[in-house]
Amino acid sequence: MPSETAAPPDTDPAEDLDLVRRCQEGDTRAFDALVTKYRGRVYAMTYHLVHNETEAWDLAQEAFIKAWRALPRFKGDSAFFTWLYRITHNVAYDWLRKKKIQSREEFDDSRTDHQVAAGAETAPRQAPAPDKALRHAELGQRIRAAMDTLSEEHRQVILLREVEGLSYEEIAETAGCSIGTVMSRLFYARKNLQNLLQDERP
């Protein structure tokens, strides 16, 4: 059996298009509904790219603001969320380019220090055993470090396919390339990650 895709966005294209149409008429409440619907996924995307809660929060905000500005030009040629993901990626990568944090050597442990809001749910409901928790934390850090060694294009296709569960066609739309290029990038990105994480092989 092929592996299942990541949980697909809970999207109803007709509902999204209706909200988009209202946004284009200046209805900010409709945009608020779109923000509520996609904020978790947009935030997750920026968080996986920058590994910092505060920066991810700000970048997700920026993505939505840019989307609002660009909505009058949205023609509905692609699904709203695909279009939104493309904006989010552009915002995040612009930020990454400015910060020049793309190489593994520059990976900074401090970027994983989360500034957690007071009162936020931070503790797992059932605390894992210390050795398991440590192993888990190390694995997470290794995966993030491995992701940081990938080129921008390879990291993008991995996130869009493995995390977001987009189809090749949707990834091609988001990345602005052909499906063949998507497959090639995905193949080599997976190979690179497998080599970097070979200790985690089954």
Partner: peptide, 27 residues
């Protein structure tokens, strides 16, 4: 296996800190 590792460590949907405030700031 790689897919499983990535999905376990990088959820597609995350709870936004101060989610309502996130919306209000955009507005």
């Amino acid at each position: 296996h790689l897919t499983d590792l990535l999905r376990a460590e990088m959820p597609a949907d995350m709870q936004v800190p101060h989610a309502d405030f996130f919306n209000s700031q955009i507005q």
